[in-house]
Write a protein that binds this DNA or RNA. Structure first.
Ligand code: SF4
Ligand code: SF4
Lengths: 128, 128
DNA sequence: CCAATTAAAGATATTATAAGTCTATTATAT
DNA sequence: ATATAATAGACTTATAATATCTTTAATTGG
């Protein structure tokens, strides 16, 4: 019952990027690495997943870096969680007697709640 | 972002116990072990935590076993989660710039939601 | 008291996953 | 051509969950 550090890093990196002129500039991982105190290689690996998920873009080479997409305001915290950790099930039924099961149903309901809360939190809300 | 198998086992064991005459009988871990297909030693270790948390009682020796407390109907799923995994934070801020932080606030809100959903799910609801 | 039964405790082992590093490769600007 | 920067993949390390094994303590019934 815990989110990964990678998700934590990603959210912080994004917030940092937003504060640094939103989607208008490219920011090299070096900058982010210093700001968050996380190694460039690891952070780069994390951010690559956000690139793959299309919430930021990247350009290699000199003057390259990461840049937010124009629609960043609408990206939700849940989007980032999924981009990093994949779709997670809060509760992995070790037995699985089918969907009529009340334990599963209860856990599913809790999970749906959690997910919808996170879907309603947009990156914009983290930075106002 | 996942609950432990131990919690899964505990919930299933409790549901099994409820179905077997509620709080009127003592059930040895052997029975539960067979029902859930989990080793007696591990299941015993898990249930010991539920005993410590006072949601069931145990008696050693012949004719011993685990028995639900009379108030079992009011025990929530969250109570069991805490008994097994302890109080968990869904999101461990790697940086922690204080409580005014929006990332933390967003995650906390999601967490509160999740917890309150689980608090509202009573064991009784799992067995009706 | 004795034998059988059952939970608890503690040490240890196993497995799984996350976190992190390192090196090589590819892409870009000047 | 050179410096810069992301990507990929192999690899290591750290951490926690899962599980087993063995010993001890408690309880029953003869
Ligand atoms: S939770 Fe319900 S369905 Fe899943 S194993 Fe337990 S009883 Fe079966
Ligand atoms: S989440 Fe907010 S408080 Fe926590 S580290 Fe990031 S900026 Fe600081």
């Amino acid at each position: 019952m815990k989110f990964s550090k990678a998700t934590d890093y990603a959210l912080h990196a994004l917030v940092y990027m937003i504060h640094r002129d939103g989607d208008t500039v490219k920011i090299p991982v070096q900058d982010l690495s210093v700001a968050l105190n996380v190694s460039t290689t690891y952070l780069s690996k994390v951010l690559t997943r956000i690139v793959k998920a299309n919430y930021i873009t990247s350009t290699s080479g000199a003057k390259g870096g990461y840049r937010l997409q124009q629609n960043w305001e609408n990206v939700s915290v849940y989007d980032i969680v999924v981009a990093i950790d994949g779709v997670q099930t809060l509760f992995e039924d070790s037995f699985d007697h089918g969907s009529e099961c009340r334990i599963q149903a209860a856990m599913m309901e809790a999970q749906e709640n959690l997910i919808s809360t996170l879907k309603n939190k947009k990156l914009k809300d983290l930075t106002v």
